[in-house]
Design a protein around this nucleic acid. Structure first.
Ligand SMILES: [Mn+2]
Ligand SMILES: [Mn+2]
Ligand SMILES: [Zn+2]
Ligand SMILES: [Zn+2]
Lengths: 144, 144
DNA sequence: TAAATAGCGATAATTATTCTCATTTGACAC
DNA sequence: GTGTCAAATGAGAATAATTATCGCTATTTA
């Protein structure tokens, strides 16, 4: 945890951003809820518990910054809100999701699985893939 | 075109919805712009040209209905608006997208490409896949 | 024909996100 | 340590997409 924050701090500094207390508190919330898919409002509520003076706009700005640095990914599961998802450290591609249409749960797939498909797409469509988003909708193992 | 509308009409009737003039005008706009990814506002503007009395709420209601019947898919490319995309007739899976991070263009991939990947996911995660969303982000052939 | 229902248009309400601006903070130079 | 100054912050206003409400009309049903 602490080392991870340290590395994020370095990442920020390398682009001459500071790890302010507000930003650190926000990052901690994201790390502590790594398996969830929190909305900005969710993050705001959780950060407030430890840092009650923080403003909502600061949370939005921090999430935007972290997205720009590819520390988190901003995703949208079709309910009206954006959600923020920590990237695996060093991963250059975003992980995949399994959304259950029964219970609404969202599980993750960290394996890439798309290497072959991407080769085909790069060649056949002459498209240089930089990242991807893949979500499966269906019935999860708990609901079957 | 006319046959396609006729089939959509049947699909609506089979769930005891009517193809009102407003709905038909909306469907026509979607068919005439099959390659685009129109927002509700875009659709509204285009429908107005032929049917100026239509209300924005009706367009939203129609798009919602068509989404429910899986005639269109509602997607989100991360700009703040939902976009509506006609499904290939009879396709049970949504097609894929190539989003260019240079010029913003969105191209389509109608081929499935995911059959093998889905077999793995179904088995390894014990997840019954009903549909998928796959978007690649990168540099399109025009921008390379 | 009369009653019930579905769909409509206008517009108010809601809500997630962004913007504005006065104030504060923190890294750095002296 | 103190002063400097751009960067960051918090409060709240503004924006914009979507949804809800409601009175009205058209269509179906009894
Ligand atoms: Mn995730
Ligand atoms: Mn499409
Ligand atoms: Zn489930
Ligand atoms: Zn391009």
């Amino acid at each position: 945890m602490e080392q991870r924050i340290e590395r994020i701090k370095k990442q920020l500094h390398s682009q001459s951003y500071k790890l302010t207390p507000q930003r650190e508190a926000t990052v901690r919330v994201l790390l502590e809820n790594e398996d969830d898919h929190l909305s900005a409002e969710d993050v705001y509520m959780l950060v407030k518990e430890k840092y009650p003076e923080i403003g909502l706009a600061t949370v939005y700005r921090t999430l935007e910054l972290l997205t720009e640095l590819k520390i988190v990914d901003k995703i949208n599961f079709g309910d009206g809100v954006s959600r923020y998802d920590l990237r695996q450290e060093g991963a250059d591609h975003f992980h995949h999701h399994l959304v259950c249409i029964e219970c609404g749960s969202v599980d993750e797939i960290q394996e890439d699985l798309l290497e072959e498909v991407e080769k085909v797409v790069e060649k056949r469509w002459n498209f240089a893939i930089k990242d991807h988003r893949l979500t499966f909708h269906g019935i999860c193992h708990r609901c079957k």
